[in-house]
Design a protein around this nucleic acid. Structure first.
Lengths: 126, 126, 126, 126
DNA sequence: GTGGTCTAGACCACG
DNA sequence: GTGGTCTAGACCACG
């Protein structure tokens, strides 16, 4: 499992860790029932504390991406592709809504925002 | 000047304040060279701490929306509409690009993202 | 606020704390918008660590009993009596279902279980 | 002897094992003086650790459901049906009393609790 | 002052 | 070995 944490990012370490694992589950790199590294092994390999890893794992468990069993380990929950897609879209929607709010507070109209988004899409598409 | 801070919002108070002043400058409610209330007066009137107002003002000054003259007060910088619009768009673009990155890391295609955005636009439009 | 933690209980401290606060919200002792003690003050008064209190508060926030705002404090969420009642019933149901499972694995029939429960009810009623 | 341990269950493996053996004794599948598999044989057949089986056996022995004879093996204790029934009821009662306490702390009345229990019984009955 | 996060080290139950 | 919990102390942003 590839994890890269940045100490310079404003994001807390546990959140960076959480996002990276989540993404690997969503894109299929981590398949259902795969055993994740133990919290201690992972903490050591990314040079952070046990509690930080534990927190990332706990939140992922609560969002039903993984499950942990005391004394046994931590595993990727096997989930339908369609459910993963739905979760991805939900998360995206939340952030997109924040963007609309930001645009509004900046005095942009919805049309202006969508125009900008289309332009960015084209640029990203190249 | 109308300001309303919500204690229930997750946004820090200083940011709520900053956004509200910024928006009033952008939409023309606060015209160029208008004098803003003193830090102490504003803090008192919106029942918050001096530090909170100070921070909002100093970030607005740094972003060149306002300027302060020691001993005289704080004023709205007179700026071309077009420059304000440009600033707004720049800030929006930055955040929109982050959103595209998030979507990508979630495994969504650009088309899926734009589709979701259009749907949200319609919902916000109602 | 009255809190009593037992070191002898098998229940983790953070859970004991959580349950006791939750109960006081449900029974109305802690009304909506009441400010809870700061995590540090509470940690000190019950002689536990900041992180333990934080964890209890976080889980209560996630279950929407309270809300915390960085730099401002932690507050009881104002909630309809009826919603509190509903939450109480849900929690009770979960545990009651576990009891039925236990009874089943012990070879008791549903009727036997309900009979026992009625007898206990009478005893508790006296 | 049929045993099925689930790695996905939150119950510790030793407890799952214990409950399943106990139930088979209570329902008569395992009659008095039946010899149970050796610890090692059972551990191998259900693919778990020796320690897990050992712990289940020793707790069952302590609760007087089975007995071990060094060098000879482990056997089901022959017990009156009525005594088994009584044990089952006692254990159930203990847990039911905890449930009443929980309900009380959640502000539910005894009548409300019994009403919920009846509803759950009907649902489980279907 | 407030909450948010993190570390380093500890002890426990379970396997 | 595994996860679960806890402590004591630290530094940060926010007010």
């Amino acid at each position: 499992m590839w994890i890269h944490l940045s100490n310079e990012s404003k994001e807390p370490l546990y959140k960076q860790l959480k996002v990276q694992i989540k993404q690997q589950i969503i894109d299929g790199t981590l398949a259902g029932d795969t055993e994740l590294p133990s919290i201690r092994a992972l903490a050591k390999s990314i040079q952070t504390s046990v509690i930080t890893v534990k927190r990332a794992y706990s939140e992922l468990e609560q969002e039903e991406f993984i499950y942990t069993r005391a004394g046994r380990g931590t595993f990727v929950k096997s989930t339908d592709k369609s459910i993963l897609q739905e979760k991805a879209e939900q998360q995206f929607e939340e952030e997109a809504n924040k963007l609309f709010h930001l645009g509004g507070s900046l005095g942009l109209t919805l049309d202006e925002m969508v125009t900008i988004i289309h332009r960015l899409k084209e640029e990203n598409n190249e």
